[in-house]
Write a protein that binds this DNA or RNA. Structure first.
Lengths: 358, 358
DNA sequence: CGATTTCATGTAATCCATTACATTGCATTG
DNA sequence: CAATGCAATGTAATGGATTACATGAAATCG
């Protein structure tokens, strides 16, 4: 269109060479669309944002023009004006950690249902990285953050921080969190080992800086107490959630000559490491030593033997976290909540009654 | 606050109560900072963007005010004005796939070196999701995309798409890609099996829609040819890169009574599945059947036995992809390139000479 | 029929930072 | 000393969309 020789001349001959025959322009603006559709920018905007308040005919006409010219509204301009981005950032320490994948999926499901997009930020445990993403919220590039570490980034915003904590939790009562009852869940795992007949149960913990790890150890201790068994510090090793840490923990225990018929690990990767180290020492799982993990990552069912573990409701954790964040974004007034889900023990092949009579 | 009767009156009685004791304002703007520092907005902006063109004293003063009042420039406004976000989106089909983790890390390293932030988008193979993220570029919320699937999203932008393809590659010569020489790499793996003495080598491939999978099969075929061995279609099964697919593939081959002493799988997860299925059938790896994977994911060294596999230079793939994208963003004129890296075979415990004489 | 709504649309202010251009003061030069 | 250049800063235009308010026409009411 508009290629005809007799071009209507426009009233204001501004400096821009925006009119000639061909349409070389790339990035369209409302103005251009408005001009092409012979309506005002307001009408174009309305036709796109709230079609119901525009007359049937103009609306169709505008949509037709938008389509023909290929117009995508500039989100920066819109977000600047509306002060909303409909974007949230999910911060995770390590995308290589398969535990988070399912959580993310839960987050995304709910986000999409509510018209939000999710962007992932990997922090690698670095405070600097974490802060960099948090600053994106301060700079209005995102509406909120779901963080999966036990830290809450500082965002210079008045009142409620648009932050929800998932999987972990912080003491700060102002921050909403979703996580599982780690004490109870760890307890169930250890209860199970006790029930099988184990009397010497080692524990490979996570970093003590993480509240959930403290809780898992707490659950372990309480279960021992329930079984009238003493807690023995020399059967406890702290790791850092890595496979290697699991290996080292077992090696350490064995090197120290500790005797145990079962090991409860604070996550699956350390459990996998533990199984490996045991195998390397010629100990069979579960015949000689039973192993229990925590999380139920995808690989847990593919180890040999398949790993008995505490399954966290990963999807639910993600969904719930996102729901809470949306709630908070819609109304800063909602009171913060700590939501606690429950986790179930999944029994697979890495556990059995102790065979070595002792 | 400020309820005391004797309020000092300020010299310039502007409308804003920006000076009294308490500072209740939350979200600061340049204007406020300018007012507080007694300079113009331009000077504030300059002090922050290009400090060198502002006099020493004003600069320090402004920085002091910025700090005291806690000002973070609104990135939306800035990006709107400058038409740059310094943000790129990395699209990956599946964050649960550990292969991508390292690639991402490479991307992030280079990105941060150049002042870019990376946001991850998980597409789950869905075109709709992929398009949604691509639209963020069209809507100016991000500068470019690194996609790790063999598809290039449509972005209504003139000329060069700000897109780089990593790990995979598309035929479109206009799109820069970084990937490994899959034909050669697969060839090396199969050559190695041949060298060990294997004559019956099965192949578990990936989805034929993916060019790199076609290449891996091609590499397998060429290696067979080099060894004067015939390609046998009935020793080939197509999977979908999942552990389950690997299991099913082996079950299928065994059910069909195929005899083979080695299996080459197009990725590690299928190789893990294959090992599992073999073990389930009572076949020992590597004594009865050797298994080779592709990718060298982190778990590959923790399987029992540890998996022999083709290690992709994951970090380098990421770094290179990001470098190319930055290059492209800085100068749309640079010609597109297909950059091919090489991959090395890592020999671990899942391969051995065939023992069953045949 | 004049007055009052209601509907559809237009005009212009607004969001906030960047930056081209203008201005001021001072130092340098012939 | 006038002329020139430079450094530092200010003024105002700009980016693109949203939306409060204004306007005009049609519909409804008394």
């Amino acid at each position: 269109m508009s290629g005809d020789g007799s071009r209507r001349k426009r009233p204001s001959a501004k400096g821009k060479p925006s009119t000639p025959a061909a349409q070389p322009a790339r990035v369209r603006t409302v103005k251009e669309i408005a001009a092409a559709a012979n309506v005002s920018v307001a009408t174009v905007s309305r036709a796109l944002q709230r079609p119901e308040i525009v007359s049937e005919t103009t609306r169709q006409h505008i949509h037709e023009v938008v389509k023909r010219l290929g117009y995508t509204p500039n989100a920066l301009a819109r977000n600047l004006r509306t002060a909303r981005t409909r974007l949230i950032i999910a911060l995770l320490p390590d995308i290589a950690n398969p535990f988070f994948s399912e959580v993310i999926r839960g987050i995304e499901q709910v986000a999409h249902e509510s018209g939000y997009s999710v962007l992932l930020g990997e922090t690698q445990g670095s405070l600097v990285r974490e802060q960099a993403y948090a600053d994106m919220v301060a700079a209005r590039q995102a509406d909120g953050i779901i963080t999966m570490s036990p830290r809450v980034p500082a965002i210079p915003v008045q009142g409620r921080l648009p932050v929800v904590n998932a999987c972990e939790y912080v003491k700060d009562a102002q921050i909403s969190s979703v996580y599982v009852d780690n004490i109870a869940a760890a307890g169930v795992a250890v209860d199970y080992l006790v029930m099988l007949g184990h009397r010497d149960i080692a524990f490979v913990g996570g970093p003590p800086s993480s509240p959930i790890c403290v809780d898992r150890e707490q659950g372990y201790r309480l279960a021992l107490k329930r079984a009238d068994m003493a807690f023995r510090a020399n059967l406890t090793v702290a790791g850092d959630f890595s496979i290697e840490a699991g290996e080292r923990a077992i090696e350490l225990l064995l090197a120290q000559g500790r005797s145990f018929s079962a090991v409860f690990c604070a996550n699956d990767e350390m459990a996998i490491g533990a199984m490996r180290a045991l195998a390397a020492r010629g100990l069979r799982v579960p015949e000689d030593v039973s192993v229990v993990g925590f999380d139920d990552i995808r690989f847990a069912r593919y180890t040999t033997p398949a790993l008995t573990t505490v399954a966290q409701p990963k999807n639910a954790l993600g969904r719930e976290a996102m729901s809470m964040l949306i709630e908070l974004l819609n109304d800063v007034g909602v009171p913060p909540r700590k939501r606690v889900l429950s986790a179930d023990l999944v029994v697979r092949g890495s556990t059995a009654p102790p065979s070595r009579t002792r």
